[in-house]
């Protein structure tokens, strides 16, 4: 009798059921969402063909795919523009948000002075600020970038600020006893403590940067040359090119999902060794 047999012998019914459920869960986690997406697309395709819906009302998924392939030059360029602005806005939001959070943490005075502005920027809808930015800023890319940044930076700022304050009080005492300087305290204690909070903010900010980039382009526009996906959707709607609208929309959705997956992966990578959230997510 092998060891494996021994082990199998002590599996009771409940444990076997639990193990089976775990195996099913591991596969279903990927299979179910993919299956649902394809089922939806299939249903959609069937609906359009069965009811002979004209493509300028609702194009079938296959028609959208054909349009995507046909317009790949235009939409590809637009995708790159939107992607570039989103990533730049996210990068600036990360740098700006983290720097502001550090300044707020180091100086109570700076926090009292500037925090209201951060809140005002956050609570004022970007659609209503955008026309002003359109007037003040001449460079088209800069306009959109500023709008996207305003939307994206707040979750980074507020989460990182919270994280910098959430250090273990005993560790703070320990650092005091060892005579740590402010810089040492920040680098070795506060920033690592704030990491899970920051990464949570990053995930929200990634989605918001994309929304900001799209909304800003809708409102302020980029004026034809070097236009992003939002402009292409508007343009296609004026021409009643519904398949292209759907194609552009699909690209935006894919970008959004990609950003979410990427930021989640970065988060898991940074925290998998020590943080509960990444441990559960990673198993």
């Amino acid at each position: 009798m092998t060891l494996a047999d021994d082990r199998a012998a002590v599996w009771d019914a409940e444990e076997r059921a639990r193990a089976r459920a775990a195996r099913v869960e591991a596969v279903a986690r990927w299979l179910v969402p993919i299956a649902v997406v394809f089922a939806t697309l299939g249903l959609w395709q069937w609906f359009v063909i069965a009811n002979e819906v004209p493509h300028y009302i609702l194009p079938s998924p296959v028609r959208v795919w054909q349009q995507l392939v046909e317009d790949r030059a235009i939409l590809g360029d637009a995708l790159l523009v939107t992607l570039r602005i989103t990533l730049m806005a996210l990068a600036v939001a990360v740098i700006g948000g983290v720097l502001l959070a550090i300044i707020f943490d180091q100086s109570r005075f700076a926090e009292l002075v500037f925090y209201p502005y951060a809140v005002i920027l956050q609570v004022t809808p970007i659609v209503s600020i955008a026309p002003l930015i359109f007037i003040y800023v001449k460079e088209p890319t800069a306009r959109v970038l500023i709008c996207a940044w305003i939307v994206a930076f707040f979750p980074i700022l507020s989460n990182t600020t919270l994280g910098l304050k959430s250090t273990d009080h005993n560790l703070r005492d320990l650092f005091s006893i060892y005579g740590a300087s402010r810089v040492q305290r920040l680098l070795f204690l506060q920033l690592p403590s704030a990491m899970p909070y920051f990464l949570g903010g990053l995930r929200i900010a990634g989605g918001l940067a994309l929304i900001g980039a799209i909304v800003a382009e809708y409102v302020v526009g980029t004026g034809g040359a070097g236009s992003g996906l939002a402009f292409r959707i508007l343009e296609a709607s004026y021409r009643l090119n519904i398949p292209r609208m759907f194609a552009a929309l699909a690209l935006i959705a894919v970008v959004g999902v990609a950003i979410f997956v990427l930021t989640s992966f970065v988060s898991w990578l940074m925290l998998r060794k020590w943080h509960e959230s990444a441990m559960r997510g990673g198993q």
Binding site: N170, L171, D173, L174, I177, F188, P192, W274, H275
Partner: peptide, 14 residues
Amino acid sequence: LGVVFQEPTLMPWA
């Protein structure tokens, strides 16, 4: 001085 608190007070990321 060396100090030991009631909690282990370790840095979880290290």
